[in-house]
Every structure is written in C-alpha cells, then in structure tokens.
C-alpha cells in the first residue's frame, strides 16, 4: 500500500545562527535546550519528517518554543529551511518543493493549494471588511470575476462554516471570537485547497465556544477529505481532530504515533509528562 502524500516533509531543519555538527549534537531534548551556548545558535527544528495524506489530519503537539511553529512556517513558506524539503502534491497530481519556490510562486500556492487558519483572527482576516469580503479575497485572488458567483460561493462557504447568512455583510470587526474563526475557516476552504494548516485554531476561545469550533472543524475534515495539519499545545484538540500526531520538544520530534496510542501509551519522558499534565 503506497499512500498518496499530500504533504511530505523530509529532514527539515531550521537553525538561526551558525550551524555545525557541534551545534546539532549539542542541542535538543537531551540537552534541555534548542540553543547552543558556545555559538548562540538556536536549532529551532532539526530532522523533522512529516507525511499527511488526503483525508487525514496530522497533529503537531508541543509547548511554545518546541519548534512546531517553525515547522509550520517552513511548510507555509514564510521561513526558508536551513535543510530539508517540503513537498506538496497539488490536486492535479503534480508535486512542488515549497522550500525551493520563489515568493510569488509560494503566494500562488497559498491561494490555490494550501490554506492556514491562524490562532489570532487578525492574522488571517481583514477585520475592517465584511465576512463575505474576507472570503471574496481568496476567490478574487484565484481569478473569480463575477460578483454574483462570488456572492453565491461566499454564502455557501459561510453557511458551511455556520456563519448565519444574515451576518454575511457585517464587518468582521463586530464578530465574536468563535464567529471570526468560522469566517477564517470559510476563507481557508474557498479554493478547495489540498492542505489546510490549523494553527491553535481554538486557543483563546472560551471552552464552550472552542468546543463548537472543534466540532465544526472535525466535521469539515470528515466531509471534505482534505489533508490537515493541526498544531496545538492542547492534547484534547489533537485527540479530537487527528488520527496521527508528532510530539515536538526543543526543536526535535521526540515521538510520533497514532493519536490514541500517544495518548494511552506515550513512550518518551516528555510525552509522558505532557499526557499526565493533560489528564490532571
């Protein structure tokens, strides 16, 4: 059985500052730090391998500073990795190494092939315009030029993400946190991307609101069959949304496995600490 990876990350590393064998060998979980004292280099991520197939959600769990954001920024193309490849398979079957793209090609990829839902809606939305306008942004970027078709598609997406249509023409500034995340989801799904990155999608929301948004994300992932990466420090989010996940600590993947297995039978000392903290 050969899986059709939508995203395949191989040997990804990102080092800020001078890099050498000593820097790599002198950092990581066993040293308790991603920073190498003698040179001041920070090994934000090293030796990271990830694969995500269509219809599958992969979790990346870790505390802030674990390197999960660095990995995500490399996947998105905001950061250029020091080493490694980030290969995305587009819906037409062609593959592309995001790490090797120029900025314009990367931007095009982010319009058509991958989308991000940010923790902070301000990073993903223009609060000064309407909910429909925010979705229209992705559609016009992809070349949609019919006002009627843009309206119809935006309404369809907002309906799918449970934004009441009476609010379609309201400014996002006037939306609650949970509703803003729903608009972000509608925007992310606008061009049927092959890959969606969810970066702490419910962090910062009230528990009951977060539960509703998680439910929505879960049903979207189930129904749409897209590949997803869910980045979170929260085990319950990972458990709810993903089938496999990796645990990151001090810039390295310390453990990977099936999500229920990682939760019930964690092997690495750090994973065990995370799980017992989550259960406490």
């Amino acid at each position: 059985m050969t899986a059709e990876w939508v995203l395949s990350v191989r040997g990804l590393g990102k080092v800020f500052g001078p890099v050498s064998d000593e820097v790599i060998a002198g950092t990581g979980p066993e040293h308790g730090s991603a920073k190498y004292g003698p040179t001041g280099s920070v090994v934000a991520a090293w030796g990271v391998n990830l694969d995500v197939a269509a219809g599958e959600a992969l979790g990346v769990i870790g505390e802030s500073g674990s390197g999960k954001s660095t990995v995500m920024r490399c996947v998105v193309g905001d950061l250029e990795p020091t080493v490694g490849s980030v290969v995305l398979r587009r819906s037409d079957g062609s593959t592309v190494d995001i790490a090797a793209l120029d900025p314009a090609a990367r931007r095009a990829l982010r319009i058509h092939d991958m989308a991000i839902v940010h923790q902070n809606p301000v990073d993903g939305l223009d609060l000064r315009i309407t909910a429909g306008g925010n979705v229209a942004d992705r559609l016009t970027a992809a070349g949609w030029r019919s006002f009627g078709e843009i309206r119809t598609r935006a309404a369809e997406l907002l309906d799918r993400t449970e934004v009441p249509l009476v609010r379609m023409d309201d400014l996002v500034r006037d939306f609650s946190g949970g509703m803003r995340q729903r608009v972000q989801l509608a925007k992310a799904l606008a061009n049927n991307p092959s890959l969606v990155l969810l970066d702490e999608p419910t962090t910062g929301l009230d528990a009951s609101v977060a539960a509703g948004v998680l439910d929505l994300i879960r049903s979207l992932l189930d129904d749409l069959g897209i590949a997803a990466i869910v980045v979170s420090h929260d085990f319950s989010v990972i458990e709810m949304l993903t089938t496999r996940c990796v645990v990151m600590h001090h810039g390295r993947v310390v453990e990977s496995g099936l999500t229920d297995q990682l939760f019930e039978d964690p092997h690495h000392p750090y994973s065990q600490r995370l799980v017992s903290a989550a259960r406490a």
Binding site: A211, R218, M240, R244, S256
Partner: peptide, 26 residues
Amino acid sequence: PDHEMAALRGRELGYVSQFLRAQPRR
C-alpha cells in the same frame, strides 16, 4: 507504519470500547 495501521483500523479490525469517542455533532 502508523498510517497503514490507521487505514486498517475500522476496515479490517474494529475496536468497540465502553465509551463513544467524542463526536457530539453527529
């Protein structure tokens, strides 16, 4: 490999526990 195990689950191998896994919206 994990992803193959995940694919095998459900199709060839089922596990019914005491608890319903959280899917409250369905």
